[in-house]
């Protein structure tokens, strides 16, 4: 009874609840008086236990999984015709996946979120793929006979246009990313001479990748793919024709304007020719133009020398280029090979 009273005191807030408590438990002490006087009784204000007891377990009258009724010779494509997330009752496979506790098997297929998370390819089994291919074969045309290798394709269709299509769940089927058009072409497939090539590369800038020899032009400034496609085609055409144009001012290019070392235009060639003529005791009164056009191939070992000088200037000083220069100069001048002093 003391418990009862003590709880009765605290105040008005719990009044109602305590009354309920009082009314239900008032009789219980009398009934169980002799048996468990000692036991500490738990105050259950919210009557949680009662509520739990009252809720009768709902009868789950569930038919067995349909996977159990499946015949072994059924067509799996009919059961799982399209992509969908995993469902244990319709997949007759003892699949397991998930975190493996020590000494136990991985969780089974039922109520397994791990299996539902990952995309499955149950709709794309080899027989299904085969039958689908057969079904859409009638829409396919014959592959052109001569395009039988990658090289042939590259040769006949040098131009490559890359676009992307997007598919997503939304009221809108458009995706702005699909407007982007990428054009790719190998530089070697364009008919360019030395000057045009140089000019083309200057026009294209960093859209040319020297390692793969590919020029990549991307257009995304127009709202529609078609416009972007027209635009990349226009860009390629314009660059190509522009690179063949000679402007007046292009003749003004001097030695200082060169972006690379051209042997023919430099002092080295004059020195080489002069030296060569000196060796032959010939008249040396060439003008600058004549020196430029002089065919150095007649000079023994000159080509190698020219190459090494060019690479020394173009590729920069390194052990390899210097060594090459060393050997080629020795050869040209007829000097003995370098003796390695040990």
């Amino acid at each position: 009874m003391s418990v009862f009273i003590r709880h009765y005191n605290p105040g008005s807030v719990y009044n109602a609840k305590i009354w309920r408590f009082a009314s239900t438990t008032a009789e219980t002490p009398k009934l169980t008086n002799g048996e468990d006087d000692e036991e500490f009784r738990v105050l259950d204000i919210l009557k949680k236990r009662d509520k739990l007891q009252r809720r009768a377990p709902r009868k789950a009258d569930v038919p067995p999984d349909r996977a159990e009724k499946m015949r072994t010779d059924q067509k799996w494509g009919d059961v799982w015709p399209g992509p969908k997330s995993f469902h244990p009752s319709s997949v007759p496979l003892p699949i397991r996946q998930g975190y493996v506790p020590k000494g136990q098997a991985p969780p089974g297929k039922k109520a397994n979120a791990e299996l539902m998370k990952i995309p499955n390819f149950l709709h794309l089994t080899p027989p299904v793929i085969k039958s689908q291919c057969e079904a859409i074969k009638k829409f396919c045309t014959e592959w052109p006979k001569l395009l039988n290798s990658e090289e042939a394709i590259e040769k006949h269709y040098p131009l490559e246009i890359i676009t992307s299509d997007y598919c997503h769940a939304s009221p809108v089927i458009r995706n702005p990313l699909s407007r982007i058009v990428i054009l790719r072409i190998k530089l070697s497939d364009l008919k360019l001479d030395k000057h045009a090539r140089d000019k083309f590369l200057r026009l294209v800038g960093d859209r040319y990748d020297g390692q793969t020899d590919l020029v990549t032009i991307t257009a995304d400034r127009c709202p529609v793919r078609r416009q972007n496609l027209d635009y990349v085609n226009y860009l390629l055409t314009a660059c190509y024709h522009e690179s063949w144009n000679y402007e007046d001012w292009e003749g003004d290019k001097t030695l200082q304007d060169m972006e690379y070392y051209d042997f023919d235009m430099n002092q080295s060639k004059r020195n080489l020719v002069n030296w060569h003529l000196l060796c032959l005791n010939e008249e040396n009164n060439f003008s600058d133009e004549e020196i430029k056009l002089y065919d150095v191939a007649s000079i023994p070992n000159a080509t190698e020398y020219i190459e090494s000088v060019s690479s020394l200037f173009n590729d920069g000083e390194s052990d390899a280029t210097l060594k090459k220069y060393d050997t080629s100069v020795r050869k040209l001048l007829g000097l003995p090979d370098k003796k390695i002093v040990t």
Binding site: E142, H156, Y157, L159, E160, S164, D165, C167, L229
Partner: peptide, 26 residues
């Protein structure tokens, strides 16, 4: 948007011939 993105490379923009079969094999 959850984009399922299909990447496609096409040879769009190149001329299609009018013959019933590939006339020149190319």
């Amino acid at each position: 948007l959850a984009c399922v993105c299909r990447y496609m490379s096409t040879i769009e923009g190149q001329k299609l011939p009018q013959a019933a079969r590939s006339s020149d094999g190319i």
